[in-house]
Design a protein around this nucleic acid. Structure first.
Length: 138
DNA sequence: GCCAACGTTGGC
DNA sequence: GCCAACGTTGGC
């Protein structure tokens, strides 16, 4: 079991839109970055991830689950790009902001803090527990 | 809206 | 294979 973080601009694809898709889930398409794609290739069904809103909100808002492993991105003919499908699992009781992560020294190595531009990131088991707790989930 | 950081592209 | 130019992202 591995943990991840999916970043999205809420004006393009928000947590609410993801929740509306229910158990059907949705392709995490549009990724055009090799590092991010490689992480998606490593994902397995059942892996969990944080759903992060970039731009104005800058906060982890929910938890998602990988429901399909990497497959060609349907939004492009370019076969270099692949994506996974994810579904919403549950929202955080309270969003965990980027500032919250920066303020917690246990999270100082989080990719979110160190490399803010990477749109799909790995999260360690330790970071997973800490952020979940900060978000009000046991 | 600006700008710094970073990744990608293409010419050599 | 290097590196300058360019485009994109995301925090501020």
């Amino acid at each position: 079991m591995n943990y991840w973080l999916f970043k999205s601009e809420p004006s393009v694809w928000s947590w609410d839109m993801q929740v509306e898709k229910g158990d059907t889930g949705e392709e995490w398409d549009g990724v055009r970055n090799y590092q991010a794609r490689n992480f998606m290739r490593d994902m397995k069904i059942g892996d969990l991830g944080f759903f992060y809103h970039s731009q104005s909100e800058k906060a982890v808002v929910g938890i998602v689950e990988v429901i399909a492993e990497a497959h060609p991105d349907s939004t492009t003919d370019d076969d270099r790009w692949e994506c996974v499908d994810i579904k919403a699992v549950e929202p955080l009781k309270s969003p965990v902001t980027l500032d919250d992560c920066k303020a917690d020294e246990r999270l100082s190595d989080m990719v979110l803090v160190k490399n803010s531009r990477l749109s799909v990131q790995p999260v360690t088991a330790e970071e997973w527990k800490i952020v979940r707790a900060l978000g009000g989930l046991s």
